[in-house]
């Protein structure tokens, strides 16, 4: 594998700086955001590189678990931040985090123990990247779905209540919304799977090939990851929508939009 030097990365960074410079006059705020995000990428990835190096050197279940919890905590925050109208209080964080925990961790454990079958199963070189990819994609699905759910409930409150008034159960009153929401959470991964290999070469596979792996081996891992991601994102979205709908109504099946708060 050809080693990248700091100079190589600096040259690539020039592209981002050029983009920021070009767009600065039309979108001054966006240029700043772009530079901050690029800087964050550089710092965060450097740090995670160091952490992973240390983690790989001593494969301890406790450290792997700790790392996994930190990743989950950050992903939960990210889901919450992406909601236009989110559930007030700890629910705003809890629904996303719990759904991701249920789906990503279960799918990761399943893959590590049953499919990959490494010894020990928690070997960080496999466990952490796998969980990372699962969490990242599940996070996308869940935040899209929750955002759509709360927004639709808000916009269609009168239609939902029109059904409640007629004696429909809460779950029937939101059945159409629920279907659309679940779809919106799953569309990104369905599109990714449908386009994989034709329109796009997935990042993980590309990385492995760049690092010198045999393309056919890289492809097998990519297929595995795609399947795991779709299961993780799908079950995570299901769980989030289920919990979200429950929270939207109270024990007397009233639509409780007062439980939402608008993001400022």
């Amino acid at each position: 594998m050809i080693q990248l030097s700091l100079l190589d990365l600096s040259i690539a960074a020039l592209l981002v700086i050029a983009l920021a410079f070009t767009s600065a006059r039309i979108y001054p705020g966006l240029a700043r955001q772009l530079l901050v995000a690029a800087l964050r990428t550089a710092i965060q990835l450097t740090l995670i590189g160091l952490i992973l190096k240390a983690l790989f050197a001593n494969a301890n279940l406790l450290w792997v678990a700790l790392m996994a919890m930190v990743m989950l905590a950050v992903a939960g925050r990210e889901v919450m931040a992406r909601q236009h109208r989110r559930f007030a209080g700890r629910w705003g964080y809890g629904i996303g985090a719990v759904s991701m925990f249920i789906s990503s961790f279960t799918v990761a454990l399943f893959a590590l123990i049953v499919v990959i079958g490494n010894d020990p199963w928690y070997q960080p070189q496999y466990a952490i990247p796998l969980l990372g990819m699962l969490l990242g994609n599940t996070m996308n699905g869940i935040s899209l779905a929750l955002d759509r759910l709360t927004q639709s409930a808000w916009e269609m409150r009168e239609t939902i209540e029109a059904r409640l008034i007629l004696g429909h159960r809460a779950e029937d009153a939101v059945s159409d919304i629920r279907r659309q929401v679940f779809r919106s959470g799953l569309i990104p991964i369905i599109n990714a799977m449908a386009a994989a290999g034709i329109v796009s070469l997935p990042g993980m596979m590309t990385g492995q090939i760049l690092a010198g792996a045999e393309p056919t081996e890289a492809v097998k891992y990519q297929i595995l990851i795609m399947f795991l991601i779709s299961a993780g994102a799908g079950f995570g979205t299901l769980a989030a929508v289920h919990l979200g709908v429950r929270r939207l109504f109270d024990e007397r099946q009233r639509l409780r939009l007062d439980r939402l708060q608008r993001q400022v």
């Binding site: 009168e158 239609t159 209540e161 029109a162 059904r163 409640l164 008034i165 007629l166 004696g167 429909h168 159960r169 159409d176 007397r252 099946q253 009233r254």
Partner: peptide
Amino acid sequence: TAPLWRRQVAYLPAESRWW
């Protein structure tokens, strides 16, 4: 139960909604 209550104590809003 709430659904049964709302069937028996029926509210008609000023503007009707259709889904």
